[in-house]
Design a protein around this nucleic acid. Structure first.
Length: 288
DNA sequence: CTAGTAGCCTGCCTGC
DNA sequence: TGCAGGCAGGCTACTA
């Protein structure tokens, strides 16, 4: 399940492979993967013969800035390619003669027999082409309401304290709310709460200033560490090259229900909040 | 405005 | 061995 560190790792891989190359054609194998334009012919036409200038990331969204050669020989803006991997999406940089994987949804063909392939088992992943005359956030609706990047200065401890003070909801659901903080998913949310010693159903308002401050620091540490490890900390996520480096860091609580806590030996429990599973140690993360 | 939930989807695991 | 049912989760649309 790609979260901020994994998406950032994909971004770095794409910047190292796809920049400056010309997209010769696009093939859509599953219609609903393309969110905009609704007409997939328009999607393919818009991307025809563009070049990728660079890939950016906002939360879990990937956004490629596109350019195109004008008649005069100069380059002009050609819009953006947006990608959200959701649960199982992968972007793979392959030789175009690589056999098609069963779950391939979109193929982006480049010159020299190279191909960027969007593979997505559960089909939740989405792609967009945004014309140069439009704003990406107009059509990539989640982008418009995204909270601050947790590793940027925008995510200050003051901001986080204010967010928590004002909200009457379990801290776990706040961590997953992308309008409050961008890029956290279930794994890093559960791990951050464990490392902060906070019970997932604890109400934001009820947190002490010390707890809020601690959580703020832990979130940044956890994401930063995962980033350095190439997003391969816990998940079986794959890089653009197809490499799956699960470099062995084990989760404290995530998917460890019934197993002993690595810190105190108490059995890890799970509860459900807002339809999401929460893994926690009842001893290390007391309810109050 | 805030908060909660159904639905989307496929593969894997469990139990009968 | 076959199959039903539960589970996994990010986001949008909807409801209160």
């Amino acid at each position: 399940v790609p979260e901020l560190p994994e998406v950032e790792t994909v971004r770095l891989g794409l910047n190292a492979t796809t920049c400056g190359l010309t997209m010769t054609a696009v093939a859509v194998l599953l219609d609903r993967t393309v969110t905009f334009p609704q007409d997939q012919e328009a999607f393919c036409a818009g991307l025809q013969s563009v070049q990728i200038l660079e890939w950016k990331r906002r939360g879990k969204y990937l956004l490629a800035t596109l350019v195109q050669e004008a008649a005069s020989g100069s380059t002009q803006a050609a819009g953006w390619l947006g990608v959200h991997l959701r649960m199982t999406g992968q972007l793979l940089w392959l030789s175009a003669d690589t056999p098609l994987h069963k779950h391939t949804r979109v193929q982006f063909f480049f010159n020299k027999g190279q191909e960027l392939r969007f593979v997505d088992q559960r089909t939740f992943g989405r792609v967009w082409w945004i014309p140069p005359t439009e704003e990406p956030a107009t059509y990539i609706t989640g982008l418009a309401h995204l909270g601050p990047e947790p590793l940027s200065a925008d995510f200050s401890s003051q901001y986080w304290a204010t967010v928590c003070q004002r909200r009457q909801r379990p801290i776990k659901t706040a961590l997953l709310d992308q309008t409050l903080i961008a890029g956290l998913g279930n794994i890093y949310a559960d791990e951050s709460l464990f490392l902060s010693g906070i019970h997932p159903s604890c109400l934001c308002k009820a947190l002490t200033p010390q707890q809020t401050e601690r959580l703020h620091g832990v979130i940044r540490e956890v994401l930063q560490t995962a980033l350095i490890q190439g997003g391969t900390t816990f998940s079986d996520f794959r890089q653009v090259s197809g490499i799956n480096g699960n470099y062995g860091r084990v989760a404290w609580v995530y998917r460890r229900r019934g197993q002993p806590c690595r810190q105190c030996g108490t059995l890890i429990e799970t509860i459900r909040l807002a339809g999401r599973s929460c893994h926690f140690c009842p001893q290390c993360q007391p309810k109050r």
